[in-house]
Amino acid sequence: MTSSTHAGGGAEVAGSEPLLNVVGLQTQIRSDRGTITPVDGVSFHIKAGEIVALVGESGCGKSMTALSTMRLVSSPVSVTGGQVVFEGTDLLGLSDRQMRRMRGGRLAMIFQDPMTFLNPLMKVADQIVEAILLHQPVKRREAEKLAVEALRRVRIPAPESVAERFPHQLSGGMRQRVLIAIAITSNPSLLIADEPTTALDVTVQAQIMHLLADIRRTAGTAMLFITHDLGLVAEYCDRVYVMYSGRVVEEGSVFDIFAKPRHPYTRALLRSTLSPGTKADDFVSIQGHPPAAFDRIAGCRFHPRCPSVLDRCRTEEPPTRRDAAGAAACWLEGAA
């Protein structure tokens, strides 16, 4: 790997090639009203066994980044540029068939709302068995045993009976466990978790996060954790990428991001989420709204809402400045 000039490009860690290296990923939605680019040149990397957070407000393109990485977007959305190198192969170059073998095998994903991501007409067991049969050379009966085993792994009580139930008979937390069970049946090396706890209440949230952390510890599964909840990030993640309007604006270790955030957007994000009395997704303290993706904002995309905006922010796009601690794309970086 060579070091990249893209925003947030993979900072090299000596001697270890990252498990996932996304470089300059671009995803576009085409319609007759024009083309919008919800993911615009995003780069990030994840090392084996690492939990990496991708944070930002809703609409900043973080979910679209995850879906694009999995190649789960379909017309009129399409991945239009960049590289997604996973375990040495560029996923964007694979055939549909090869990509299918990846999904649910080495590379798995869980989602935001466990209510809607399970097929309501299929028994829990059948949905897990489906995943097992696709990726492991076992017979159906063996797969059924493995399915119960997977439920046990995600600490579902009485897994045999839960396996025979339908999704609507389970609580939200249980359903998310089932989705996790489906995702980890084939021991993926990377799990992409798209806001996996957002739809759950707080106690269940903690249980699910503990479970994910445990899976990382015991199976060494790396995770891309997409969230807007900085509290969870602080507690569970190793490194952080901050996204704004389709771009990565800052990256760094959890410690650095929380101790000395460099980008004004990150600072605003921290202020709004960590001050007592505000809800995790309450962004009121950042003035204005994130720009609609159609907007073509000149200069830095954050400048209309930035408290410390400079003149050049309105016209020139800031480059990503990188040092040992991380990277940020802000003109203040150079001035400071």
């Binding site: 789960l72 549909d96 073998r101 990846m102 649910g104 809607t116 097929n119 995943a131 489906i182």
Partner: peptide, 26 residues
Amino acid sequence: AQDYIIAARARGVAEHRVVYVHALRN
């Protein structure tokens, strides 16, 4: 357009099975 379709694709289910089993039954 449902979420469980995306979830099925995410676990590697082939397109014809997505259409004829997951979507059609619903």
